[in-house]
Design a protein around this nucleic acid. Sequence first.
RNA 1: GGGCGCUUAGCUCAGCUGGAAGAGCGUCGCCCUUACAAGGCGAAGGUCGCAGGUUCGAGCCCUGCAGCGCCCACCA
Length: 850
Amino acid sequence: MRVPEKPSLDGLEAKWGEWWETTGTYRFDRSKTREQIFAIDTPPPTASGSLHIGHVMSYTHTDIVARYRRMRGREVFYPIGWDDNGLATERRVQNYFGVRPDPSLPYDPTFDVTALERPDDDRPVRVSRPNFIELCERVTAEDEKAFESLFRLLGLSVDWTQTYTTIGEHSRRVSQRGFLRLARKGLAYTAEAPTLWDVDFQTPVAQAEIEDRERDGQYHRIAFDRSDGGRVEIETSRPELIPACVALVAHPDDDRYHDLVGSTVTTPLFRVPVPVVAHHLADPEKGTGIAMICTFGDVTDVTWWRELGLPARVVVRRDGTLAEGRFGEPGWESEDAGAANAAMAELTDKASNQARRRIVELLREAGALLDEPTPVRHVVKFYEKGDRPLEVITSRQWFVRTLDRRDDLLARGRELSWHPSFMGARFATWVEGLNQDWAISRQRFFGVPFPVWFRLDDEAEPLYDDPIFADEATLPVDPSADVPPGFTAEQRGRPGGFIGDPDVMDTWATSSLTPQIAGHWEDDDDLFRRVFPMDMRPQAHDIIRTWLFYTVLRADLEHDSLPWSNAVISGFVLDPDRKKMSKSKGNVVVPTEVFERHSSDAVRYWAGSARLGYDAAFDEQQMKVGRRLAIKILNASRFALSMEAAPGDVTEPLDRSMLASLREVVRQATEAFDDYEHAKALDLVERFFWGFTDDYLELVKQRAYGVHGAEKAGSAVAALHQALDVLLRLFAPFLPYVTEEVWSWWREGSVHRAAWPSASELDVADGADPEIYEVSAGALTAIRKEKALAKVSLRIPVERATVRDTGARLAKLELGAADLREAGNVQILETEPADAASVDVVLAQPAQQA
RNA sequence: GGGCGCUUAGCUCAGCUGGAAGAGCGUCGCCCUUACAAGGCGAAGGUCGCAGGUUCGAGCCCUGCAGCGCCCACCA
């Protein structure tokens, strides 16, 4: 036994972090079977971002579970990845190196960024996509080192040999293979369709990436001309789309417009004849009850356009500006094409809000604006990272079928165990609200390319209906550099030749395969069978509709199973004012500084006290408490282990009673852990521990020193050792450093590979009554209280202490009476049966006058 | 508008299947006690959001309301 004189928390992180690594404490043993393994689908944090205190909390939650399961005998598969695939990295690399990816360029194997010559005008240098990806990997490797060191400091018990990056070759291969499998089954398809589109990023946006924002807008009341010479009034917030109007629509049951349905009206300014149609989605309550259908103002327009078989007249370009007038051409009929094109010319090249201002003037001049616009606060759809409202733009994209799988997905959501359970409702709400298939292609440059080429016809126009898919054996491929089977490089871009699909996949198309990536699906079937479906997906609630949903979808489509059996959802960390922490509010906390101030165990204690699914306040006070607890564990352990008496048999009733009480704590903490209620487990263990130090240690101190002989001392020392041994293991998932430190003083190996405490190892407490300990500790507390109230030292002798309680409890007190007398320095201890419990204390020395 | 969660001491939160309101922090007081003074012991502090109901009994169950947070829907 090597117990230090002055134990300390300082340096424990470095000492044990290194030891765990060199001894491979957390190394995954892949020889274990699926039943023996506990597999975790760890979230890959975004490289190029920074880790914040919210990560610290949720990753600690995961680690607590991992450590518990490991101690329960499961071989924990605990890999980690870095999400370096996506816009954040793309932008960073562009700025860092002054380059821009260009999918039309071939890969240059001799490319050397350090020798890069910048043009004088400071314009970015074009590089091929594969070269660009190499640069991304280089930059993100730096971020990943920083992340790793923070996670190591936090004490995550991940296997650092099982790491992956979402842009790495392995992830690209899995991602492309996953896509090919979907395409082959017809579950991924390409189509030219109206899609929500960000005009700044110039890329489609999936439903999951959309957020609503309240914006000020205006309603404009506008007159359309009826064929009978009358007018019909509509209300719109987007008058600039009048040239794109293809119909008016009213509800079939709306009597006001009953006669109008089936007739033709004429749009103002552009003089385009459009039909009046009926559809149940038209809301009689909104505006005037009759609405303009444009191609396309919003998603409802798309529904109307599709279901009513309307023509398309598109006026908004991909960059959000308005196009030139084409009135008079086929499909652009107008009663006065000249005037229509003249009006359109006033709007051409303007962004929609500028065009809106101009057309309002034109409408006013033409007498078609019936009232001055009325301000309105309404909700507009935005790309979550975007600055301007989304437009609906028609483009060719790859989609994954989700709409027709809603029932399946809802069933998967019910099959999954959610912790806490109410989080399942968010998933169900999301699935029920799906209104479009998942658009997975992005017109960006950095990302996983589609393993697809298109044949070119004699005019060198792509034939999209018959894509050429890559052979799975050749993955990953980059169609901008690689040549499809049966073609030669010279045929690229030539009539009768081919072109590569220039698009990349949505990052979620890769992230949704993290179980397959980490488990080496198809590349290592043996491993995959041992870890998939996994046991647990930890994540925060904000990405249920993205990461969680898409991962469930992919596993359902590819493996016809859930990807994991448990979803463990952490809350957010709020600042002490209950505000969400964010960079823009300037209230973010730098995790490394927090670790320095309080120690890793202390920070983990704070995180471990927070329940799953509920937001937690960032609370340094709580970390101080954690630090104090860790120090207390050091000191109490040193004390318990420094007794000179040899441990003997645990025979004293008080000792056995304490162990019986501990056994109940083990039972309850285990139950809490099995229910993913780690905060409850921590509370139980901590509560017992403080009682153990305040009461039990005090009660048995003298006896352990040997005042009643070696045998009774041996019982106390043995009980102290046994309790400490169990307590260290109970604390180990929460406080890995301090428990490992104490464990190393007197035990072999790592506490983190020791077995979780069981009831059977405490069988010395069989038949023992926990109440003996409870009654004795209660009496000691009462005596201490009297001394505190009398403002005297705890050493002051008690002349007489009279304990009143029920006969049964007094009988139990008798069994601990000898220890109680010593601990309280009681000269005469007497008992008196009574209905209500109380303690009378007569101090030997009167209270000092103040 | 629909849904989920929350509302308990100044603060952060526990309160299991209904059975005498709890912890920690903070505040205040005391104690150098041979593990720990960057300690320890103790005290004060609550109309359990509001209103009904069920029950012998409600912080807990039911109904309604209010406030806060989040999710979803909502562009005429």
